[in-house]
Amino acid sequence: MVTIADYGTYETAWCPGCGNFSILKAVKEALTASQLEPHQALFVSGIGQAAKAPHYLNANVFNGLHGRSLPVATGAKLANPRLTVIVESGDGCNYGEGGNHFLAAIRRNIDLTLLVHNNQVYGLTKGQSSPTSEEGFVTKAQPGGVASTPFNPVAVAVAMHAGFVARAFTGLPDHLSDLIQQAIAHRGFSLIDVLQPCISFNKVNTFAWYKKRCYQLPSDYNPADWGAAIKAADQWGEQIPLGVIYRNDRPPFEEHFPVLNQGPLVGRDVDRMMLKEIMEGYA
């Protein structure tokens, strides 16, 4: 029986009141509810305040480079498909620096959960705009306001028929934890874009701002309906829908490799007779 205590408690480097605390708690609850033992999980993260999260629980961790957690996670999952792989990083890491990997991971539909702490600002580097910052958002680096329109990760993921696309808000932690459980259980790529306030550097998209706008999709909403999902994904501004916005049953990437039917690559012998045969093909 896995309990939340198995995941430990650590001192963090986050600002008091940061949305990261709610996400960390929801992650631990979801892992416990999924009855996953710490050694069965691998967290891969990049760089940013969000990317520190895996250091604050008990699990296997690869804390890599800014923007590069998805490829590391992809390699690790292919090498050992038995690992439950969770990528946890921020909006800058996943949607900015790692944008190409975000698109490629959706296309592959590799079985992992991407948990994006999306606070629409760069926290670790002290308040520059992020790919999801709203147009006109003023920072020290963008004193005239952000001139680009924000990236909508949920709409992009739905447009690309990602396996599982959800949006959550740190003000609804139980809902978030439930979504994480569903994402872990989903076989294929899962995105959870988690809206969270940055109390230090985002004075526009505050807790109150999100709370006023976020609403849970109604129970008769059908996430298998791609047309409806595109509409829901595009909704932003006065009303922001939360929940599973889209899902499908595309086969996960790993299924395309028959070699993985036998489990992890580690510890497999080299078939030397086959290697000899291949080599002799060069005669």
């Binding site: 590069r68 490829p71 590391v72 992809t74 390699g75 292919l78 090498a79 990997h101 490629a104």
Partner: peptide
């Protein structure tokens, strides 16, 4: 695996190697 770019290629290889391949 043909990666989306060389950055992904080396990071994937590191992920796989970390996991034992």
């Amino acid at each position: 695996e043909q990666a989306e770019d060389e950055i992904a290629a080396i990071n994937m290889a590191l992920g796989a190697s970390f996991a034992g391949a």
